[in-house]
Design a protein around this nucleic acid. Sequence first.
DNA 1: ATGGCGATTTGTAACGTTTTAAATTGTGCG
DNA 2: CGCACAATTTAAAACGTTACAAATCGCCAT
Lengths: 357, 357
Amino acid sequence: MADPSKLVRPGSAAEKRGKPTLRTIADITGLAVTTVSRALADAPQISIETRHRVRQVALDIGYSPDRAAQRLKTGRTNVIAVLLAPHEEILGYGTSVMAGVARALQGTAYHLIVMPNFLDAANIEAVNYIIRNGMADGLIFSRTEPLDPRVKLLSETGFPFVTHGRTELATAHPFVDYDNFTFAYEATRRLITKGRRKPALISGPAGFTFTGHILHGFMTAVREAGCAYEILSDIDLDSPAGAIRDRIRRRQADGDPPDGFACGGEVCALATITGMSDCGLTLGVEYDIVAKQTSPLLGAIQPRVDTIYEDLTDTGEHMGRILLRRIGGSTDTSELQLLLEPELRFKTETAVGDRAV
Amino acid sequence: MADPSKLVRPGSAAEKRGKPTLRTIADITGLAVTTVSRALADAPQISIETRHRVRQVALDIGYSPDRAAQRLKTGRTNVIAVLLAPHEEILGYGTSVMAGVARALQGTAYHLIVMPNFLDAANIEAVNYIIRNGMADGLIFSRTEPLDPRVKLLSETGFPFVTHGRTELATAHPFVDYDNFTFAYEATRRLITKGRRKPALISGPAGFTFTGHILHGFMTAVREAGCAYEILSDIDLDSPAGAIRDRIRRRQADGDPPDGFACGGEVCALATITGMSDCGLTLGVEYDIVAKQTSPLLGAIQPRVDTIYEDLTDTGEHMGRILLRRIGGSTDTSELQLLLEPELRFKTETAVGDRAV
DNA sequence: ATGGCGATTTGTAACGTTTTAAATTGTGCG
DNA sequence: CGCACAATTTAAAACGTTACAAATCGCCAT
C-alpha cells in the first residue's frame, strides 16, 4: 500500500531527523495526514484496520503529538494550573497536594503548572491572568473565603476549577474539603473526655471558611459539655512557631490558664508543647493536646499527642479527578463535591502509658 | 494613518470578540501583521515611532502573545520544568525551592511546570521524556549522584539544566550546591568545642553526592580533634522520624553511646531529641545537637539546638537565574556554578542559659 | 530622467495539528 | 449499465506566530 517513492518526501519531517509528526506517519503508511490524525483519535469513520495500522506505526517510531500545535488548533491547553500561596511552604502542604494532583493526572494528557502567588498577595490577579490568557484548562486553589472573589470570578466565567475548601456562595462549585467542624468538635470532645476542664482553641487565620468551621466545631463541643473554654487571642495557625510558643508561655503566667489545646496543625502543636514545657508543664500530665496531623512527623516526635489525620495527597488526588470530570463537562455536583471525614488517631491509655518519659 | 475601512475586517479576530492577536493590532494601526510582530520584538529595522505606537496599542487592548503559536513557530516552549522527587514532601523542600525558582522567573516569559516523579523511581525516564518531546526549555532537579545518569544524558544532548547538587563527572555542568562539607565540619567541630567526646553522624541516604560531602566534613573534624566518633547505622536523613527515634533509643541501651549529634535536617534533629528524651537524657546537659535548619520550625521548637542554616528558596532563585543564563547561551561555568556557604547560627552561652527548662 | 541605496514596511510560507467540506471508493439495486 | 448511497479517505483551510525574501518609499548621485 505504501508507495515507496513517497517514503521520503523532500522536505518532509522524516527527512530532517526531527521529532516524528503526523506527516511522518502519513509518509510511512501512504495515507493522508488527515486520515492519520483521525485514526489516532479513533474516529469511527476510519476503518478499524487502518486505525490499528496507524497506531502501530505511531508506536514504532515513537510518535507523540505536538502539544503546541494541538493547543493552537483546539484552544485547549492540556494544562492544569495550581495556585500556590506563600503559607503553603509549611510542612509540605503544597508539595503533598501537588503530588496528589499529579497522581490524578498520571496517564492523561494533562500537565501541571504551578502559578506561584508568592509575591503579590491579591491572587485574584493570578486567576484573572489565567482566565484571560487561557493559560490552562482548569484551576486548583486552596484557602477559600466564604465569599471568595476567585470563586465568583471563575463561576461567572464558566472556567473549570476545584477549590480546597468550601465557600458560602449561592452558586454551587466543585470543591474538596476536609470536615474541619468534625475535626474541631472531636478534638475538643477528646480533651474534655480526658478530664480537661478548660480547652483552648488556636484559631485559623481570619477570613477563611475553614476557620469558621473549626470555631463552630470547638464551640459546639464546649457548649455541649458546658465547660469553660478559651480562644487564644493574637495568634492563629499561620503564626510563626515562635509566636505561638511565646503566646502560650505568656498565657500560663496569667490567671486560670487552659489545660487542653486543640491545634489545627503540627507546627502549632509542637510550638504549644514547647511553650508549656518552658513553663514546667508536661504533656499528658498537666495538660493535653489534640492536633491535626498531615505528616508522619508529629506521631514520631510527640507520641503522646492525640491526632486527627488529614491526608493532603489524597485531597490533591480527589481535586485532580474532580477537575478532570468538570473539564469533561460534568455539572453534576454530587460527583464534583467531596467532604472528607477526619480520621481519629487517638492513643489508647495503655499505648500511651507504656512509654517512658 | 489607520484606514477606517480596515478597522473591522470581516472574519478578523477583533470581530469575533476573542483574545486580541497581532492581527487585531495590525487592523487597528493599519500596519501589516509582520510589522506589528517585529515592532513588539523591538526589531531595529522598525522605526522607533512605529514601535512606540504599536506598543501603546498593544497595551491599550491588553494584547498578550499566544504561547501556543509562539511555541509552535519557534520551537521554544518558554517553560521550565522542575523534577520533583517523593522525598521532597518533607518539610516543604519542594515548595521552597519552587518558590525560589518562580521568583527568578518572575517577569520573564517562562512558566514553571512540575514533573512529578512520584510514582516511578527511575526519574531518568522523566528526563528522557522531557528531552525527546521538547516539553521544556530547561530542567531543574536535585539530589545528584556522583555519576548522575540524568546529568550525563542532559549533557550529551546539550539540553539546558541546573542541578541542586554537584556530581563528579568530568564535564562541568551548571549547578547550585550547598557546602555540605563545611556544614558537617562546622557542626562536628561545634559539638567538640562544647565538650562532647563522641560525636555521631546521621548520614545522608546512600548514593548521593551530598552524602559523601557530609561524611567527609564529619570525618575531617573528628580526625582533626582525634576524638571518638560514630556513624549511626541502619538510618539516614530520609528515614521516617519514628525510625530515627527508635534507633537513637536502641543505641543508648548499648555501651558507650554518642553524646553529640550532627543532624542534616530538622526532622532528624527532632527525632533524635525525642529518642534521647525517651531515655531520660536532656539536650544541652547530657548531649548536644547541631542541625541543619531550612525552616523557622526548629529554632522555635527547640531553641537549644545549634543550627546551621540553608536557604532553600534562595537556592531555587539561584537555580532559576542560572538556568535562564544557560538557556540564553552562556557556557561560562563561573556564572553557571554556585556553592552556597553555610550560615552558622550557634547560640551564645548566655542566650541558651536564660531560658527555663 | 535613471539607477542605486538605506530605511522601512510588507506578503508569503511555514510550524503541526484539527476541522470542514469534498472526493474517492465500493456496493446494491433498479 | 448507471445511479444512489454508504463507507472510507482526502484536500484545503485555519489557529497565531515568526523567518525569509521581496517590495515600497524617499533621496541622492549620476
